[in-house]
Write a protein that binds this DNA or RNA. Structure first.
Lengths: 217, 217
DNA sequence: GTCTATAGTTAGATAGAC
DNA sequence: GTCTATCTAACTATAGAC
């Protein structure tokens, strides 16, 4: 890793813990193992370091969207037709774990939560990736699942909201406790299981799966 | 309002917008209409102003808990037996609007969201009131509603999680848009209606209300 | 590309007049 | 209880040696 990369790496860690203004150029330098003035050979200043972190985040998100959300691997041929409780759960866990643990996404998300109230541009980014944007994306997914008959014919927006909000809540709950992975996953799985019981099938609320699905444990 | 109260009021507004370290003593003074050194006749320093805001928040929360959560008014005699979709919706809206719009609670909540990553004590307060604590309280409510037969016999923790997480998500979504009250309430009501359809009654999923409830709009 | 030394700036807080 | 003037400390950034 080059010094420039090290700087960005350490800077993002610090920004995610303290926000922009409480991180001092000297802190970043110390974390990298150099002195503050040396940073200015790599970046024009603190703001440029920050801007590069933003850029790095966008690159990572573009990358993961191609991997996780738009898989063009052979498996994608099975499409929505075969999506079931297990697949929906897998998708939820994948999304949750990425937002929670990915080095870039999780740190940048925390930084955005600190900065979004004072910086409208960062608030927009936060909303696009972690609030409205996330729900809107899932809305499209559920609209397709409804067409495929996998999910009940109800308002896709409300379905997406009820799917995503526990993920969002649990992210906040476990953000400070990266070691509680099993507990977090357990809660998420229970929540998604209930979600699937409510919404799967064309009108399958009284199809008898309500009580028996618990055997999956 | 005394100058001391004015200081606390303006300080909380600024802290909720910028967090602790980006608010300068001079900013608070200007907002109040005095000069910075004058503040020191009322408070020892910036930290004491902040601590007083914390105290004010605790007072407000104690007050509202007695009003909203533990109503000892005559109406409470009807108890959980008569709780229905409408009452649960009313409770959800009351909780949401308080967290969203109450001058003290909403500002303090925003400040906590900014500060919780760098201050463990503030993170604990945030969790107690807006994350774990909120769900734990509702867990107790739903446990009682289950006993009363109003809510289906399922894990009260998951029920509480699925009840509260949309409230929490919508709070983040509309935090910057206090004027979008009707839109926010609409989304919340749709979400809670679906919640009630899923959980109300001992096993009342196929009681025919599923499609027709939309007439309420 | 790293360092030491230092300039320039600004925030928190105090002194003392009114 | 408010002000002006001022101190001290801390941070960003630059200059210039190596």
């Amino acid at each position: 890793m080059t010094t420039k990369e090290k700087i960005l790496n350490e800077a993002l860690i610090l920004f995610s813990e303290k926000g922009y203004s409480d991180v001092f150029v000297g802190d970043i330098a110390t974390a990298v193992g150099i002195k503050a003035p040396s940073l200015y050979k790599h970046f024009k200043g603190k703001q440029e370091i920050f801007d590069s972190c933003v850029e790095k985040f966008f690159e990572r998100m573009t990358q993961i969207r191609n991997e996780l959300f738009l898989p063009d691997t052979p498996q994608s041929d099975v499409s929505y037709e075969t999506a079931d409780t297990e697949k929906i759960t897998e998708f939820a866990i994948g999304l949750f774990m990425f937002y929670w643990k990915d080095d870039i996404a999780s740190r940048f998300r925390r930084m955005l939560m600190i900065e979004r109230y004072r910086n409208p541009e960062l608030n927009r980014i936060y909303e696009d990736f972690f609030v409205n944007g996330a729900v809107e994306y899932e809305e499209k997914v559920f609209a397709e699942l409804i067409s495929a008959g996998v999910i009940k014919k109800e308002d896709p927006h409300i379905i997406a909201l009820r799917f995503y909000s526990p993920i969002y809540y649990l992210l906040q709950k476990y953000d400070m406790y990266p070691d509680k992975e099993e507990e977090a996953k357990g809660e998420l799985i229970s929540s998604i299981r209930e979600f699937c019981q409510t919404y799967k099938g064309k009108d399958s609320r009284n199809d008898g799966i309500i009580k028996n699905d618990k055997e999956n444990d």
